[in-house]
Design a binder for these strands. Structure first.
Lengths: 223, 223
DNA sequence: AAAAACATCACTGAATTCAGTGATACGTTT
DNA sequence: AAACGTATCACTGAATTCAGTGATGTTTTT
């Protein structure tokens, strides 16, 4: 076949990339033309004029820059997206899904979905449609129809992306057990400022103490 | 080939199972004979006398029962494991690695390792050897040779199992953001006693603050 | 252009944690 | 029997966090 769909995969788990590559290899209308292990690599790859892809499948949790940051970066560049983007995540929080759609994603796959879904998703998205894996689609419909049950508020609905860059930065230091004074030194700030950020984090994430902050960070792998 | 290595895969991400299955399908000396999406399924599957596998590849983070719990269950019930077990995890903490090895695992793969490693791991482990993916092996050697830093000496080797029941109990409450006074009420103890447990936890786990305790607990899934 | 969000800094006072020490009692293990 | 680990409780003082408020300037969004 001549016009194969060119796919780029981004995930920090190489084993998953290899796995998806193996899954796609039996399909004769698509091929993997590149992969990235973190968000920075994704942006770098698409910057290169010689590299092109028709579909980008991207995890949200990645080091360096996460999937949200990549979406924002692409959106900010003012230009059009390099290609349709499918988010592949283990999270299925409705707010997160809404967020990435707002940021321009064309599809959303839960990691617990089957390999078939990914093939289908690539074809549909490459054709200009949107695609959501079954469980995700269910969530969206539920939420739309007001049937939202438990999943509307994961940790009270606060997402990583609801935190500012500075707050995330401070949070990382908190998780390294630095106290406010030490963090202030690291970031060249006043300890008072760090304390303010810390308090804002407590409010946003609705936790009682820095322990809650650390656990949130751990659960969302932003540390 | 007659004697294919029979593999069972356990991971809560179906897409990863499908991926690994695709990777293994091109190897003619192994085959996947089953898979599980959580720890309970693993135990269930191996309970059935009709099901047999030569190697179990298992994630640590799974709902219902996690990988650690499965290892413990196998160790507890029978004397012999149903088969060699390879842990597949995104965590590469040295303490966690040591813990699963203590619990009888035969191999450890980081999820960021390549697909080739998994094939190699299966062959080696099926032959009765141990196998660790490159980055993991590095960590083990580093730790063994003490090159890392002093973190492997003083009261090191501190694992979940090194904590007393009471300490674990207190730790759980700490992770729920209770303060010492509240924990004392819950456990009908003096706040002073709780403080002592807290301080002993800090020493044993060699962390600076309760944040470190919470992160340890999160990483070791004891919360 | 106005409004909202972000980042910065300051002050106070109460609550909590952390470090260091020491003590009693009970059960294993050696 | 002695040593060890565990569980319990107490006291002090310094360090740190947390809550509440307020302020200024910049950037982004609407």
């Amino acid at each position: 076949m001549e016009n194969k769909i060119k796919v780029h995969i981004a995930d920090d788990h190489k084993i998953l990339i290899d796995g998806i590559e193996a899954v796609l290899s039996v399909e004769d209308d698509m091929e993997i033309v590149g992969h990235s292990l973190n968000g920075a690599e994704v942006i770098q790859w698409f910057k290169s004029k010689t590299n092109k892809a028709d579909v980008l499948i991207m995890d949200i949790n990645m080091p360096e820059k996460d999937g949200i940051a990549v979406l924002k970066a692409f959106k900010k560049g003012r230009k059009k997206f390099p290609c349709p983007i499918i988010i592949l995540s283990s999270y299925d929080y409705i707010k997160l899904i809404r967020e990435v759609l707002k940021l321009g994603a064309s599809g959303y796959l839960a990691k617990k979905c089957a390999g078939d879904n990914i093939v289908e998703a690539i074809r549909r998205v490459a054709a200009g449609d949107q695609y959501f894996s079954p469980t995700i689609n269910e969530k969206i419909v539920q939420s739309f129809s007001g049937l939202k049950n438990a999943s509307e508020k994961p940790l009270e609905g606060m997402l990583i992306s609801a935190l500012t860059d500075r707050e995330k930065q401070v949070l990382k230091f908190i998780c390294q057990e630095y106290n406010s004074k030490e963090i202030a030194e690291q970031l060249c700030l006043s300890p008072n400022t760090v304390e303010t950020h810390r308090k804002n984090l407590l409010k946003k994430l609705q936790v009682k103490s820095s322990i809650g902050l650390a656990l949130f960070a751990a659960q969302h792998k932003i540390i």
